[in-house]
Computed example of a mutant assay.
Amino acid sequence: MVLLPLSEAVVGGCFTPVALIASDFDGTLTHQGKLTATVLESLQALAFVNIPVLIITGRSAGWVEAINSYLPIIGAIAENGGVFYRKNREQPEFLTPIVDIEAHRHRLRQVFQQLKTVFPNLKESADNRFRITDWTFDVTGLTPSDLQNLSQLCQESGWDFTYSTVQCHIKPFAQNKADSLIYVLTTYFPQLRREQVLTVGDSPNDESLFNPLLFPLSVGVNNILHYTDQIRYHPQYVTTKAENEGFCELATLILKLIDVLPPSS
Score class of each variant (00 low, 15 high):
108 L>P: 03
126 A>F: 14
111 V>F: 02
77 I>F: 04
95 L>E: 05
149 N>C: 10
124 E>N: 04
165 T>V: 15
171 K>Y: 04
154 C>G: 10
118 V>I: 14
172 P>Q: 02
85 Y>M: 08
111 V>I: 13
189 F>V: 04
143 T>V: 06
82 G>D: 06
182 I>V: 12
119 F>T: 01
99 V>R: 13
152 Q>I: 11
86 R>W: 01
106 H>T: 14
127 D>L: 12
92 P>T: 11
72 P>T: 00
124 E>I: 14
188 Y>K: 02
132 I>Q: 10
71 L>P: 02
112 F>W: 07
67 I>K: 06
92 P>L: 09
130 F>C: 00
178 A>H: 09
136 T>R: 11
163 Y>S: 02
60 S>W: 03
124 E>V: 15
132 I>P: 00
99 V>Y: 07
70 Y>A: 04
147 L>W: 02
106 H>Q: 12
177 K>P: 08
70 Y>T: 08
156 E>F: 05
155 Q>K: 13
88 N>Y: 09
92 P>E: 11
87 K>R: 15
72 P>I: 03
193 R>T: 07
152 Q>L: 13
170 I>G: 10
117 T>K: 12
155 Q>F: 00
75 G>S: 08
126 A>S: 14
117 T>N: 02
126 A>R: 13
182 I>H: 03
114 Q>W: 05
172 P>K: 05
114 Q>R: 12
129 R>S: 15
131 R>E: 08
115 L>P: 01
68 N>G: 10
146 D>A: 04
102 E>L: 12
178 A>I: 07
151 S>L: 07
166 V>G: 00
126 A>K: 12
102 E>C: 02
163 Y>V: 05
166 V>S: 14
173 F>A: 09
147 L>G: 05
191 Q>M: 03
93 E>D: 01
136 T>V: 13
144 P>G: 10
131 R>M: 00
69 S>Y: 02
61 A>E: 14
173 F>S: 08
166 V>T: 12
87 K>I: 02
118 V>S: 11
87 K>L: 07
150 L>P: 04
93 E>C: 04
66 A>Q: 09
116 K>Q: 15
183 Y>F: 15
63 W>C: 01
187 T>P: 00
67 I>Q: 05
148 Q>T: 12
160 D>R: 11
185 L>M: 10
184 V>R: 04
96 T>D: 00
135 W>G: 01
144 P>Q: 09
85 Y>I: 05
74 I>W: 03
66 A>S: 06
130 F>Y: 09
85 Y>Q: 02
77 I>W: 01
117 T>V: 11
113 Q>H: 13
86 R>E: 13
110 Q>M: 08
167 Q>I: 02
140 T>I: 11
140 T>N: 12
174 A>E: 14
167 Q>F: 11
191 Q>N: 03
95 L>D: 06
167 Q>V: 10
151 S>H: 15
89 R>K: 07
90 E>H: 08
180 S>F: 07
185 L>Q: 03
94 F>P: 00
99 V>E: 15
